[in-house]
Computed example of a mutant assay.
Amino acid sequence: MIGQIFPYAETTGSITVRVAPHYLPDQSDPERGYFVWAYHVRVENGGTASVRLMARRWLITDGDGRTEQVEGDGVVGVQPLIGPGGAYDYVSGCPLATASGRMEGRYVMMGEDGGRFPVTIPAFALELPGRKPVH
Protein backbone atom coordinates (compact mmCIF):
# COMPACT_ATOMS: atom_id res chain seq x y z
CA MET A 1 0.00 0.00 0.00
CA ILE A 2 2.73 2.52 0.92
CA GLY A 3 4.47 1.83 -2.42
CA GLN A 4 1.29 2.91 -4.22
CA ILE A 5 1.14 6.17 -2.27
CA PHE A 6 4.90 6.83 -2.51
CA PRO A 7 6.21 5.34 -5.77
CA TYR A 8 9.80 6.44 -5.11
CA ALA A 9 11.82 5.32 -2.07
CA GLU A 10 15.45 5.13 -0.98
CA THR A 11 16.93 3.88 2.29
CA THR A 12 20.25 5.08 3.67
CA GLY A 13 21.20 3.30 6.90
CA SER A 14 18.08 3.44 9.07
CA ILE A 15 16.49 6.41 7.25
CA THR A 16 13.99 5.89 4.41
CA VAL A 17 12.91 8.77 2.19
CA ARG A 18 9.70 8.31 0.17
CA VAL A 19 8.42 10.69 -2.51
CA ALA A 20 5.13 11.10 -4.38
CA PRO A 21 5.12 13.82 -7.09
CA HIS A 22 1.90 15.24 -8.57
CA TYR A 23 1.38 17.59 -11.51
CA LEU A 24 -0.65 20.70 -10.64
CA PRO A 25 -2.57 21.72 -13.77
CA ASP A 26 -4.44 24.51 -11.95
CA GLN A 27 -1.12 26.26 -11.13
CA SER A 28 0.51 25.57 -14.50
CA ASP A 29 0.35 27.52 -17.78
CA PRO A 30 1.62 25.19 -20.55
CA GLU A 31 1.11 27.81 -23.27
CA ARG A 32 3.66 30.02 -21.49
CA GLY A 33 6.05 27.14 -20.69
CA TYR A 34 5.21 26.99 -16.98
CA PHE A 35 4.60 23.57 -15.42
CA VAL A 36 4.23 23.07 -11.66
CA TRP A 37 4.54 19.92 -9.57
CA ALA A 38 3.98 19.28 -5.89
CA TYR A 39 5.92 16.54 -4.18
CA HIS A 40 4.99 14.87 -0.89
CA VAL A 41 8.01 13.62 1.04
CA ARG A 42 8.02 11.27 4.02
CA VAL A 43 11.25 10.81 5.99
CA GLU A 44 11.09 7.69 8.18
CA ASN A 45 13.47 6.94 11.04
CA GLY A 46 13.84 3.16 11.39
CA GLY A 47 16.64 3.52 13.92
CA THR A 48 16.77 3.50 17.71
CA ALA A 49 17.82 7.15 18.20
CA SER A 50 16.34 10.49 17.20
CA VAL A 51 17.70 12.35 14.17
CA ARG A 52 17.28 15.95 13.03
CA LEU A 53 16.98 16.93 9.38
CA MET A 54 19.48 19.81 9.16
CA ALA A 55 19.81 20.63 5.46
CA ARG A 56 18.79 19.71 1.93
CA ARG A 57 20.41 19.74 -1.49
CA TRP A 58 18.30 19.24 -4.63
CA LEU A 59 19.39 18.77 -8.22
CA ILE A 60 16.49 19.68 -10.52
CA THR A 61 16.75 18.82 -14.23
CA ASP A 62 14.18 19.95 -16.78
CA GLY A 63 13.20 18.10 -19.95
CA ASP A 64 15.85 19.97 -21.97
CA GLY A 65 18.63 18.84 -19.61
CA ARG A 66 19.08 22.20 -17.86
CA THR A 67 19.94 21.69 -14.19
CA GLU A 68 19.52 23.83 -11.11
CA GLN A 69 20.93 23.13 -7.67
CA VAL A 70 18.95 24.23 -4.62
CA GLU A 71 20.47 24.09 -1.13
CA GLY A 72 19.25 25.27 2.24
CA ASP A 73 18.65 24.62 5.90
CA GLY A 74 15.96 22.09 6.82
CA VAL A 75 12.80 21.68 4.77
CA VAL A 76 9.84 24.05 4.40
CA GLY A 77 11.32 26.36 7.03
CA VAL A 78 11.95 23.79 9.77
CA GLN A 79 14.63 21.37 10.95
CA PRO A 80 12.41 18.56 12.20
CA LEU A 81 13.42 16.12 14.93
CA ILE A 82 12.33 12.59 14.00
CA GLY A 83 12.15 10.13 16.87
CA PRO A 84 12.92 6.40 16.67
CA GLY A 85 10.25 4.69 14.58
CA GLY A 86 8.80 8.10 13.68
CA ALA A 87 8.30 9.94 10.42
CA TYR A 88 8.10 13.51 9.16
CA ASP A 89 5.93 14.47 6.18
CA TYR A 90 5.97 17.67 4.15
CA VAL A 91 4.81 18.95 0.78
CA SER A 92 6.72 21.34 -1.44
CA GLY A 93 6.68 22.32 -5.09
CA CYS A 94 8.76 22.80 -8.21
CA PRO A 95 8.06 24.84 -11.36
CA LEU A 96 9.72 23.93 -14.66
CA ALA A 97 9.84 25.53 -18.10
CA THR A 98 9.33 22.10 -19.73
CA ALA A 99 6.59 19.47 -19.52
CA SER A 100 8.93 16.95 -17.89
CA GLY A 101 11.94 16.72 -15.64
CA ARG A 102 13.41 15.01 -12.64
CA MET A 103 14.60 15.76 -9.13
CA GLU A 104 17.08 14.05 -6.85
CA GLY A 105 19.11 15.05 -3.87
CA ARG A 106 20.21 14.44 -0.33
CA TYR A 107 19.54 15.53 3.22
CA VAL A 108 22.09 16.14 5.92
CA MET A 109 20.88 14.56 9.15
CA MET A 110 22.29 14.97 12.66
CA GLY A 111 22.28 12.15 15.18
CA GLU A 112 21.88 12.48 18.95
CA ASP A 113 25.69 12.48 19.27
CA GLY A 114 25.92 15.60 17.07
CA GLY A 115 27.44 13.69 14.17
CA ARG A 116 26.15 14.55 10.71
CA PHE A 117 25.52 12.11 7.88
CA PRO A 118 24.06 12.26 4.34
CA VAL A 119 20.77 10.59 3.39
CA THR A 120 19.84 10.01 -0.25
CA ILE A 121 16.58 11.40 -1.62
CA PRO A 122 15.43 9.06 -4.42
CA ALA A 123 15.48 10.40 -7.97
CA PHE A 124 11.93 10.93 -9.19
CA ALA A 125 10.27 11.92 -12.44
CA LEU A 126 8.20 15.06 -12.94
CA GLU A 127 5.86 14.03 -15.75
CA LEU A 128 2.49 15.06 -17.07
CA PRO A 129 -0.10 12.32 -16.47
CA GLY A 130 0.05 9.72 -19.22
CA ARG A 131 3.60 10.57 -20.39
CA LYS A 132 6.63 8.30 -20.19
CA PRO A 133 9.16 9.10 -17.41
CA VAL A 134 12.45 10.88 -18.11
CA HIS A 135 15.53 8.87 -17.09
Rank of each mutant, 00 (worst) to 15 (best):
G111T: 10
F117Q: 05
V134M: 15
E10F: 02
W58C: 05
G46M: 08
E104D: 14
D73T: 12
P80L: 09
Y23Q: 03
Q79N: 15
S92P: 12
I2V: 13
D89P: 00
T120N: 02
E127M: 13
L53R: 08
I121R: 04
S14K: 12
E71A: 14
Y23R: 04
Y34I: 05
Y88K: 10
R116I: 11
R18A: 09
V108Q: 06
V19R: 11
S50A: 15
I5N: 06
S28G: 03
P118A: 04
A20H: 07
T67G: 08
W58Q: 10
P95L: 11
H22M: 06
G86W: 12
L59N: 15
R42V: 13
E71I: 11
M1E: 06
A87Q: 14
G72C: 11
V119G: 01
E112V: 15
S14I: 06
A125G: 03
R42N: 08
V19S: 11
D73V: 09
A97P: 00
D113S: 14
W37F: 02
D26F: 15
G46R: 12
G33P: 06
P122Q: 02
L53D: 01
I82R: 02
I15R: 01
N45W: 04
G93M: 12
R42D: 09
P7T: 00
A55E: 13
E104F: 07
